Amino acid sequence: MNWKALIEDRNRFFWVLHTAGWFGFALVHYLGSLLHDLRDIFAVIIFLNAYAGWMITIPLRYVYRRAWNFSPLKIAMVVVISSYIVGVIWQVIKNFTYWTIYKHGYEPDFWLYYTQNSVWSFYIILSWSGLYFGIKYYQMLQKEKQNVLKANTIAHQAQLKMLRYQLNPHFLFNTLNAISTLILVEENNSANKMVTKLSEFLRYTLDKDPMKKVTLSSEIKVLELYLDIEKVRFEERLRVVIDIDEGCQNALVPSMIFQPIAENAIKYAIATQESGGTIAVTVSQFGDDLLLELADNGPGAQIKNGNLHRENGVGLANTRERLQALYQDRYSLVVANNTPSGVKVNIRIPFQKGS
């Protein structure tokens, strides 16, 4: 049985609970009757009483539906009055059934005797009403919770897409600037190579869904593609070292997680030195976490409270926001000075295996 579909179908859910409740009422009374020396016909009385309760409480559902938007005081009045009326009617039916069948056609001296013990029946119906409103309010709260979660998910997805798409224009501007410079100095072959690499890079970013994580091997490929573009510009001045532990190739990471960090390293470590520099990428697993590190051997920077004071673009701020949106508090991003020189960025995220 598909329980989720059953619960979400409110009409079907009502009939299941309604029937199960009155069946339970009959079962409890039957088990209680076994403690007394009663004739077998009493089981029929119990069944008829439960069936009468099942039938007579159905109209209450429609009464309460109409009263649903009333003020709390009016709802309470409707519930009490309706429960009392239905309770009295039910008690009359129970007394009539008991006296007619079990007592062989006994008739009381006064018709009001048919309503005796109505208070107990009133309590039963009042309990049914309480359960009805309790379940109804619970369903309403669950529905509101689902709506809030859905709205948060949509906002969350929109935020991630916005953060992801901030990267491409930023990188594109810098690359086109470099291509323009190469053309001005008549380095047409280098400019052509960079345009080719750029088209491959942009094709990759457009093909990947920014809402989905990618495998580390895929992320490393796009990082290498990005660095190849920069190598056209820097040639031997840019050196790259990549060290990936075995078993981490299929780990899931946010797409384009390395690119803005690598862009910062190139801008502030490679481009500022005549001899260029090295970008080192290291990935390893530690327990249930995946550790990502990107380091350079540039001149370093002033670091305060984990922030780089040299940064003017989206870079690390964008990366922090993306990690926060994806992992909440289950991540860390630490910026520190590298040894003997430069800056290193360490990211810790949950280790998730991809296919």
Rank of each mutant, 00 (worst) to 15 (best):
K4L: 09
I7Q: 13
E8F: 09
R10P: 05
F13V: 00
A20T: 10
G21M: 09
W22Q: 06
F23M: 12
F23L: 15
G32N: 10
D40P: 15
V44P: 03
F47S: 06
L48K: 12
A50K: 01
A52H: 01
I58R: 13
Y62L: 10
Y62A: 08
R66L: 12
I75H: 08
V80D: 03
V80K: 01
S83L: 02
Y84E: 03
V86P: 02
W90K: 02
Y98C: 05
W99N: 03
I101G: 00
I101D: 07
I101E: 02
P108D: 04
P108M: 14
F110V: 09
W111P: 00
L112H: 12
Y114Q: 03
Y114S: 06
T115L: 07
G130S: 11
Y132T: 03
I135W: 14
Y138S: 13
M140K: 12
Q142F: 09
A155P: 05
H156M: 10
A158P: 00
L160R: 06
K161A: 12
Y165K: 06
P169K: 06
I179T: 01
T181E: 08
I183L: 15
S190T: 09
A191P: 08
L202K: 02
R203P: 00
R203K: 15
R203Y: 06
D207E: 15
P210D: 04
V214Q: 07
S218N: 13
V222M: 04
V222G: 00
K231N: 02
R233S: 07
F234Y: 15
I244G: 11
D245P: 03
M256T: 08
Q259Y: 07
I261V: 15
E263C: 01
K267S: 08
Y268H: 15
G276W: 09
T282S: 10
T282A: 11
S284L: 11
D288W: 00
D289G: 02
L294M: 14
A295K: 15
D296C: 13
G298W: 09
A301G: 11
K304Q: 13
K304Y: 10
G306I: 00
N307A: 13
N307D: 11
L308A: 04
E311L: 14
N312Q: 09
G313I: 03
V314D: 01
L316D: 05
N318V: 07
R322Y: 05
L323I: 14
Y327E: 00
D329Y: 05
S332F: 05
N338M: 01
V343W: 00
R348I: 01
